[in-house]
């Protein structure tokens, strides 16, 4: 079977069946070889094309003085373009073939990575960027900046993310974590000198980090297909939607100037790379297929975050053993 079907796993029922490999694209209305979106009689595709051409092409005017991001990253117009750009990307990507063999088919469904060829390309790009740009800078930062200063930077960045945690803890009905995060935010923002010192953490109180991807999961939304996002890394359809909402609901998105947004993004990226570098290298050592390793680790870690750390790490064996 050469058709790439993305049923249920894609955007709910908006696209009940998407045919997206280039070899299939020839026969698909609204698509021509080379991946260029053309006019279509299909109203859904017309709508998508309209959205892509309208918002993806950047016709939303820049809003002067308003920028920012979740970890600092983008101006308002870019934020608003994201869903449309993501749509265009999804329409031109290559997909994995759906196998006919029953065992293979079952594993394909479990793997839930219908966009694997494209994901691998983006993953290679992300890894190249990590190896040649981010890691050298992050390691220099780790080796030359004293530990207490790095801890202060990490604390400030964590504190800036706290409003998103407060909101999403509330949306999940986790009012204990919401109270904990609110208390941490106010104590650290004042007595902790703008978050430089994490005072509650010193007495063992640290709220769990929550985001809208986790909220959607708690509300019952399926994970959707695995995605690798440029510069961001492993994600899923649900977490990509969550990321967009996190950006929009982060107060700093609306308060920071673009310059400060870039500072925040850069600092967050270097800080997290410096902290995670060794773990990434350990996972990469001896890996048979690092892409698949990263996908598996991302999903397991995400399941654990959604379950607030109580996910049974060995639960995956139950279906197999039955």
């Amino acid at each position: 079977m050469t058709l790439c079907r993305i049923q249920k796993m894609m955007w709910g029922k908006i696209l009940p069946q998407t045919i997206c490999s280039r070899s299939d694209a020839v026969n698909w209305p609204g698509y021509r070889k080379g991946g260029v979106l053309t006019a279509s009689r299909n109203p859904r595709l017309r709508l998508l094309r309209h959205a892509a051409l309208t918002y993806g092409a950047g016709t939303i005017p820049e809003l002067p003085g308003i920028g920012g991001e979740r970890d600092g990253c983008m101006s308002m117009s870019r934020v608003m373009r994201m869903p449309a750009v993501a749509t265009v990307v999804l329409l031109v990507v290559a997909c994995a073939e759906v196998p006919d063999d029953p065992v293979e088919h079952e594993i394909f469904i479990e793997t839930n990575d219908p966009l694997e060829p494209t994901n691998r390309t983006v993953f290679d790009f992300d890894v190249t960027l990590l190896d040649h740009a981010l890691s050298p800078v992050a390691l220099a930062y780790r080796d030359h900046v004293p530990g207490p200063v790095r801890d202060g930077v990490s604390n400030v960045l964590d504190n800036l993310q706290m409003p998103v945690t407060i909101l999403n803890s509330g949306l999940q009905g986790d009012f204990d974590n919401m109270a904990e995060a609110t208390s941490s935010f106010f104590i650290n923002s004042t007595a902790g000198i703008a978050g430089l010192f994490d005072i509650p953490a010193n007495s063992g109180r640290k709220p769990r980090r929550e985001d809208f991807g986790q909220t959607l999961a708690v509300w019952g939304m399926e994970e959707g297909p695995y995605l690798v996002l440029p510069l961001v890394g492993p994600s899923s359809a649900r977490d990509t939607v969550g990321l967009g909402v996190d950006i929009m609901t982060d107060p700093l998105t609306w308060l920071l100037t673009p310059a400060w947004s870039y500072v925040r993004t850069g600092a967050a990226t270097i800080d997290s790379t410096a902290r995670e570098h060794d773990r990434i290298e350990v996972a990469r050592q001896g890996s048979i297929d690092f892409y698949a390793t990263a996908r598996s680790l991302y999903r397991q870690n995400r399941a654990r975050e959604i379950a607030n750390g109580v996910e049974d790490p060995f639960g995956f064996d139950d279906t197999f053993e039955e």
Partner: peptide, 23 residues
């Protein structure tokens, strides 16, 4: 028979890693 570091299972990770190569 298995171990998990911070909730990440060794066998689960290997299984996911091997599946793509076998396919």
């Amino acid at each position: 028979t298995d171990f998990a570091i911070e909730g990440l299972s060794m066998v689960k990770t290997l299984r996911d890693e091997f599946a793509g190569v076998i396919r």
